[in-house]
Design a binder for these strands. Structure first.
Lengths: 214, 214, 214, 214
DNA sequence: CATGAATGAGCGTTCATTCAT
DNA sequence: CATGAATGAACGCTCATTCAT
């Protein structure tokens, strides 16, 4: 199965039982995202978040122990959402009879595509969240993607070059490191290029040439 | 020529004329670095910087218009220092009669080496400084490295595969994007691996297989 | 008559008619006591009281106009309880044919005994509740005890020294002031000593030597 | 020697070097006292203290790590001031050729006198400060007074009744416990009586009759 | 009636910056 | 020039209380 449930309770002081509560929490998380994107990390403060979410500051603290927990949930939701999107994208793009080269191209497109929908948020999170001590995010993000890709590649190890006998795991690792590395630096400098097909293909080619037999 | 002068005046309220002023500025910049590395961005505040530098807060504001300017100079110096180091490293490692494959390996090592001397500072800057609006840093860093590498590769375009006729510029771009991407994500997750030779060689192989003729 | 009815209605928004209401009120008062003893005055907040009492915050405000009223009732009940205990204790300990000296010793023991059952609550109330504006408590407490004692001493004025012709009222005043004074300062510093019999006897001796004939 | 130096540094973040700093600290401490007396503990908040002291809130936090430290210094100064006053008062009132009875009367007057100059502050501190966790204050206060009195009584043990052979220490203990007890409860109920000479004399008589030979 | 989600004034504290000495 | 005392806007957070359901 692709994607896994998110343990939101970890970030919440009490489980929301009514729809009203859930709406409040959603509004708070979305306000956090919005402010982060529009004003950067410096603008993210609890009073402003509450105001923007249309609730009082007291309400925020009914559901979240502190600012960190709220930001944590936002990040968690973002990462989880991207994993779901990645899973769905892979499901659509891949078929078992594809050869490895084609598959690599599709994997790269799928990976980049997850950052195209809300590139400003991807970027803002990448830039700002580490600064607030949520370093693990990037790692979790990377690790979960790696697992998805490894699964997708499971039956293709026969098409790898010599020296890559360990097969899918290693390819997944290389692929994810290179692709995420490129995504990260692109997000930081010129995120429009993430939508450039030629750029994607070039990146896929980088991976393919690395793993194909000589 | 490798490396270019740094326009420090851009960050300073007045040009330091005596050695004493220069010492004060150096102390402030170094204190900023130290605090950033030891306590993260959250610990970087002007009062603490001044205290650690052994000067009064008033003195800090004699030389810098605001906190941003001081941080800016620190970053600028760091990037410039790395460029000089990279230039020197390339100068040592490269010779004109190397073939392209060997050169790629040396280039990758040179690029990674610049982050090995003060990896905590590289990492801290990457993680924390963008958050304070110094986004350009990474780009400047990347761009300057790209120029250095392009220069080094100038006469090797004959050894590239077809489809890379544009030669050195493109290779430099790919190389720098991939390598920096990997460096960035490694700094964020597991910076000890930056010193792992096998890791460096694998990265060089990635690049080499991308650009070599079929 | 020993002890008088407590006017609980003064603290309640509406008279509880069913047992269920009375249980709710009791639970709230007891939760308040518990929290005060365990966490001090700082821990006493209405949300926590309601939670600990197992009712909703809204219910608390159905019965009490505000926090002060709830605390007031708790204090009132405590003081009233102590008066009843003191009355009962005197009833047990005293008999009409005792001489005054013996009576003094028994009175002192009775007074101290009322603070031995829940010394932490006595202490917590003494320390924390005045701070919230319930100053009168201590006076009421003292005054009611004085009345009880005065009654007990009514027929002993013949055994007093000269200069104490006013008899029981003055002795009661001195006794209560000295004993409560000592109880108060002992509660604040070293409440274990309240159970020390030698300590009680010394205190009784203090009073006795004061009032006895030369 | 009567009275001992106060370790104010324990409460301050940095030693005040200029008169200006000392004035600021004094203003803050006095503002704290004033607010405590006028509005009770509930009115004591750092913003108001700063405002009333005529300085900015930032200045308060230049000298005090937190609210507790400021309150601590105020209490410390008050207790120390009272000790000095008590010492001076004893010095004036006592002479070596006094008999014990006279001495007891003077001691009681001296003890009560220290609470007559600023009875509202004595009372406010007694009522409010314990509630904020500074319980030790009362004990320190009592203990220091006990030492002063013990010293004053040093050569009078010959005039005690049998059973008080331990002499001065025990008398000092009894005296201080009874007198402070009475002072405490009087402060809480009717502090005007602290100035009532007949009341003082009655209290002295209580003590004297306790310790005198039969 | 009971519930508990929501409110918001106000608290303790921080830190970039100014300015009298 | 250097100093460091002073400033004050703004932050994270609490808790007594209200009110729609």
């Amino acid at each position: 199965m692709l994607g896994e449930g998110v343990d939101e309770a970890r970030y919440l002081l009490k489980e929301p039982k009514q729809q009203r509560s859930r709406d409040t929490i959603d509004a708070l998380v979305e306000a956090t995202e919005l402010i982060l994107v529009e004003e950067g990390w410096a603008g993210v403060n609890t009073n402003r978040i509450a105001e923007r979410a249309g609730v009082s500051i007291g309400t925020l603290y009914q559901y979240f122990e502190n600012k960190e927990a709220l930001v944590g949930l936002m990040v968690e939701r973002f990462v989880a959402g991207q994993q779901v999107a990645l899973g769905a994208s892979l499901w659509e793009r891949l078929s078992e009879d594809m050869d490895l080269e084609r598959m690599i191209f599709e994997l790269v497109r799928a990976l980049m595509w997850t950052h195209q929908e809300r590139p400003e948020l991807s970027r803002a999170l990448l830039m700002h969240v580490p600064a607030s001590g949520q370093l693990g995010v990037v790692n979790v993000w990377t690790e979960r993607s790696r697992v998805l890709i490894e699964e997708a590649l499971r039956f293709k190890s026969g098409e790898l070059r010599e020296g890559m006998e360990e097969g899918a795991p290693l390819v997944a690792q290389v692929l994810i490191t290179a692709v995420h590395g490129v995504i990260f630096s692109t997000l930081m400098s010129d995120w429009e290029r993430l939508k450039d097909e030629a750029f994607m293909d070039e990146l896929a080619r980088l991976v393919w040439r690395y793993i194909r037999p000589d």
